[in-house]
Amino acid sequence: MRRTLFLASASALLLLPPLAAGAPLTGTGVTAWGDGSATRLPLPQPAFPRQDADYPRRLSFTKLDAAGKALPDTAPAWNCVRDNVTGLVWEVKEANGGLHGKEHTYTWFNPDERVNNGVEGREGEPDDITCGSPAVVRGGCDTMKYAEAVNAAGWCGYHDWRVPTVDELSTIVDYGRTLPAISTAYFPDIIMPAGFWSSTPSAAGPSYAWIVIFDDGYLGTCVKSWNYYLRLVRSGKK
């Protein structure tokens, strides 16, 4: 009887659907322990068991070159980063301007009424100057036009870049550090305050969408007409 129950639950687990594309669950990157007051202790705390650091969940990234080929960790230059846990491939921004300039910001814009929660946000205009001057994105500096421009040009060999969902964007937060809360060995492109757009609209108000602030990993919402950074993502499948 007990065995039957076990088999039943085991088969229930086997029948689990794969992780939804929008909701990968990852570790937090935390490798230190806390007690009643401290937060960065080097050893496990028996009185405060079962913390993040008690489970080995390290960040695992691979650098990719302009053609999407994997590079060794020691490579001095790379264009994209693959997350080996989620399979997602992330855009790395450019230090010296260009289409992918790390200092560029965009307003949230999505005219698709099926997914924009009733408010399309602020459409970029040709005289926008927040994403390169002279303009490198045709039509203006909004999230949709930027993704279109990157897909037209291609990046790391891919043409299926998109704005990440908030669940996806939060998977590259490294909660084990701050200023910034991301692995700078793979993402050396953070300018703080580092608010980055997600594609996820806010249920709290149709004029808002979710952002991740990579200074420390804060997740919140902001008005779609504001300017924030944008790191595009694509799914792992070729």
Partner: peptide, 22 residues
């Protein structure tokens, strides 16, 4: 359970009123 790396004595929480992580 996640400690906050930015200062001593901090930890992360999620507000289930709206989903904000702070």
């Amino acid at each position: 359970a996640t400690p906050y790396a930015g200062y001593q004595n901090g930890a992360w929480n999620i507000n289930f009123n709206d989903g904000v992580h702070d």
